[in-house]
Computed example of a mutant assay.
Amino acid sequence: MITTEYAPGSPCWLDLGAPDVRAAASFYGAVLGWDYESMGASEAGEDFEGGVFKKDGKVVGGLGKLTEEGARPAWMLYYSVTDADATTEAVRRAGGTVRVEPMDLDEWGRMAQYSDPLGGQFAVWQPGTTAGLDLVDEPGSLAWVELFTTDGAAAREFYGGLFDWQFSDMPLPGGAGTYTLITPAGLSEDRMHGGLMEMGAQDLTLTDGRPYWHPVFAVEDCDAAAARVTEKGGEVQMGPQDMEGVGRLAVCLDPAGAEFVLLAPSEA
């Protein structure tokens, strides 16, 4: 499970790059019950810096205008590190690409963004006054992260070397392959925070064959939340369906095409 005790290598933040900030805020507000708090606006009244999503007054994510030429709307996942500069050099040594060099965000912390050697994009956060999200693993918040990659062994080598993650494999039902579970270094399996799955490039149609990370958001009622996705202009790509030992889930796209998963976890 993800907790707000952000151990090194654990997910601690996420933000959405969207072509229309106001439309994205409206969509996720309807689907997940989020409030949007803007951090600024232009003279024309259009958000230029974006802002944060909140659930019951607690920060659950960030939202910003998609400005990178050719970039697709997507959620960016951040992992906690003690030294963003050292992590950046480790990324380079391991064959990754530095997309955004380490930079300070006022007193809140220091961040950097990368691509792994196969093209999967991710980011890191070195905490200052802000350790990460205020709310996780509750309805309407981040509960899990997943990587779809074209080479599971290469992904394990890269991320394992970078974050010292612990991995364990479990077979998927019906011989559908292997799902690799991820736990931060030195922690017990009850602190698992995500998984990775190898898929063919032909199956990664969303990114034209490039690996990608996506968030899983906890909800109380997966069917009701999935219905709100379609009502508000999004798309349900898979489900809702039951996954034994996991819960009921649906793979979704927001109206701009950013992927996320809704999960009503199984009762313990």
Rank of each mutant, 00 (worst) to 15 (best):
I2T: 10
T3M: 01
T4Y: 00
G9W: 02
G9F: 04
G9T: 07
C12H: 07
L14N: 07
D15Q: 06
D15G: 08
L16K: 06
G17I: 10
A25K: 05
S26T: 14
F27W: 06
L32T: 06
Y36H: 12
E37K: 12
D47T: 03
F48R: 15
E49G: 15
G50E: 02
K55W: 03
D56P: 06
K58A: 15
G61V: 04
G70Y: 11
G70W: 09
P73F: 04
M76C: 10
A84C: 11
D85V: 11
A86H: 02
T87A: 14
R93L: 13
R93S: 15
G95M: 15
G95H: 12
E101K: 08
E107M: 14
Y114S: 07
S115E: 12
D116T: 03
L118S: 14
Q121P: 08
Q121M: 12
F122V: 10
A123I: 04
V124H: 07
Q126A: 11
P127M: 08
A131R: 12
D134F: 01
V136Y: 00
S141A: 15
L142R: 02
L142E: 01
A143D: 00
A143Q: 01
E146S: 14
T150A: 05
D151A: 11
D151Y: 08
G152M: 08
A155E: 05
R156V: 12
E157M: 10
G160E: 00
D169P: 09
D169R: 10
Y179Q: 02
Y179F: 12
L181M: 14
I182W: 00
P184K: 10
D190V: 12
M192F: 08
L196M: 12
M197W: 02
M199Q: 13
L206W: 02
D208L: 04
V216E: 02
D223Q: 14
E231S: 03
G233M: 05
G233D: 08
V236M: 10
G239C: 10
Q241W: 03
D242I: 04
E244I: 05
G247F: 03
L249Q: 03
V251P: 00
L253S: 07
G257P: 05
V261T: 13
L263I: 06
A264C: 11
